[in-house]
Amino acid sequence: MLSFLRCGQSEGRKFPSGSFRFVALDVETANHDRASICQIGVACVLPDNSIETWMTYVDPATPTWAFTGLHGISQSTVKGAPSFAEALILLEAPLSGITVYQHSGFDRSAFRAACTALKRDEPVWNWQNSVTIARRAWPELKGNGGHGLASLKRHLGLSFDHHDAEEDARAAAEVVLHAERAKGLEVCFHDA
């Protein structure tokens, strides 16, 4: 049984500290512009495989909200939230030197786009992909729903609210942990 602790929005809360085996990161965007990050969720996996999560809304400073119907986040939700630059300050150092999983390539590309909009380099993190891990662990899902979080939710019996960055980050971390148990540690930490 996996356990997790929610740290909640960053208002008044620091990013979790400690020794993490790896983290999973997920973002939600306001619209089709990948730089329009409006929520960041991080799931930190501790040495005992428990998961501590952290989330912040982000004000993408855009009037265009195309995905509110999908994730429920709107301009009023992010009012008073940090900018991406401010959120990045909280994350950059703690995520350096550890593996950062994303579920697909979207999250890193969103970080890259948001950093480009700020005219700065993206953080040098050890990005890996939990989809690649899932494909290695459960090849039988190819053509049977695939390796997206919705399919893995059914296959692995995961419980999470899809399209919430904190929940999706936790689910991606759980995918990696399930793969470790199913196939062994070596499947998870080779270059993905």
Rank of each mutant, 00 (worst) to 15 (best):
T29F: 12
N31D: 01
H32I: 08
D33I: 07
D33W: 14
R34I: 08
S36M: 06
S36A: 10
S36G: 05
S36R: 01
I37T: 12
I40S: 02
I40V: 10
G41C: 06
G41R: 03
V42H: 02
V42Q: 01
V42E: 04
C44M: 12
V45Q: 00
D48V: 02
N49L: 09
N49M: 12
S50Y: 09
E52M: 15
T53L: 10
T53C: 06
W54D: 01
W54R: 09
M55Y: 11
M55Q: 12
T56Y: 07
T56W: 06
Y57W: 14
Y57K: 12
Y57E: 14
V58T: 01
V58G: 04
D59V: 05
D59P: 01
D59M: 01
P60R: 09
A61F: 14
A61P: 05
P63R: 06
T64E: 15
W65I: 01
A66W: 13
A66F: 14
A66V: 14
A66K: 15
A66T: 12
F67C: 08
F67Q: 13
T68I: 07
T68S: 13
T68E: 05
L70D: 03
L70H: 11
H71I: 11
H71F: 07
H71S: 11
I73Q: 06
S74H: 08
Q75F: 08
Q75L: 04
S76Q: 07
S76F: 11
T77W: 13
K79G: 00
K79S: 04
A81Q: 08
P82V: 14
P82R: 09
P82H: 13
P82F: 13
S83F: 00
S83T: 04
S83D: 06
A85V: 09
A85K: 15
A85Y: 15
E86D: 14
E86H: 15
E86L: 15
E86A: 15
A87F: 05
A87T: 10
A87M: 14
L88V: 11
L88E: 11
I89Y: 15
I89F: 13
I89C: 10
L90M: 14
L91N: 01
L91C: 08
L91G: 02
E92P: 07
S96T: 08
S96G: 04
S96K: 07
S96Q: 14
S96W: 04
G97L: 01
G97P: 04
I98C: 03
V100I: 06
Y101L: 04
Y101F: 14
Y101G: 03
Q102L: 12
Q102K: 08
Q102G: 11
H103R: 00
H103W: 09
S104E: 06
S104Q: 04
S104H: 13
G105S: 03
G105M: 08
R108Y: 10
R108E: 07
A110G: 02
F111N: 00
F111E: 00
F111K: 00
F111Y: 10
R112N: 14
R112G: 09
A113R: 09
A114M: 11
A114E: 09
C115Y: 12
A117E: 00
A117D: 02
L118Q: 10
L118R: 10
K119W: 07
K119G: 05
D121P: 13
E122K: 12
E122R: 10
P123M: 02
P123Y: 10
P123D: 02
V124S: 07
V124D: 01
W125D: 04
N126E: 06
W127C: 01
